[in-house]
Amino acid sequence: LKQLHFGHCVVSMDMYEIRKGFGEIKEMTQAQDQYTSIRLLHRSYSLQDTKTEDRCCFFHYLLKFYLANVFNQCQANSNFHQRRVSRIANNFLSIKKELTLCDTVTTCPCGKEAIHRYEQILSRFERMESHSAALKALGELDILLDWIDKTE
């Protein structure tokens, strides 16, 4: 498990399950991405370079973004694909629930930087056609997982 420390909050992520699920659909997902010149999770908004005090909120935004805007748009493919997306999505939900528990004790403040970074990602996402955007975001999951791995 990867443990992320946000102030008093410790959130554990089953990176093994998530990377396993994503690894099995990564190629087919990225192959369907028609907008190869666009990148949603841009290096300039990376989680690990976000100010420590803003990381929790930014991470929470990213989790909610994937849960609400991405996974449910990518369910239609094959049963194989659907089951892998379900594995990732349910693990994201498990993490978000842990983070929400932390949030209740206000150790997850939302500063300007966190909101700005998230809005940059969301605005790029919303400029694209929704299914293509969701597919691109799903294909960029390895970027997010790398951000998480690099986050102390």
């Binding site: 849960l67 609400a68 996974f71 449910n72 369910q75 049963n79 194989f80 659907q82 089951r83 379900s86 999505a89 349910n90 994201f92 939900l93 498990s94």
Partner: peptide, 19 residues
Amino acid sequence: EFQGEYERDYANDSWIPIG
């Protein structure tokens, strides 16, 4: 078929067959 919490909360209570 199975349904995780995600499918209930975010994917219209959908069910997924297990091949």
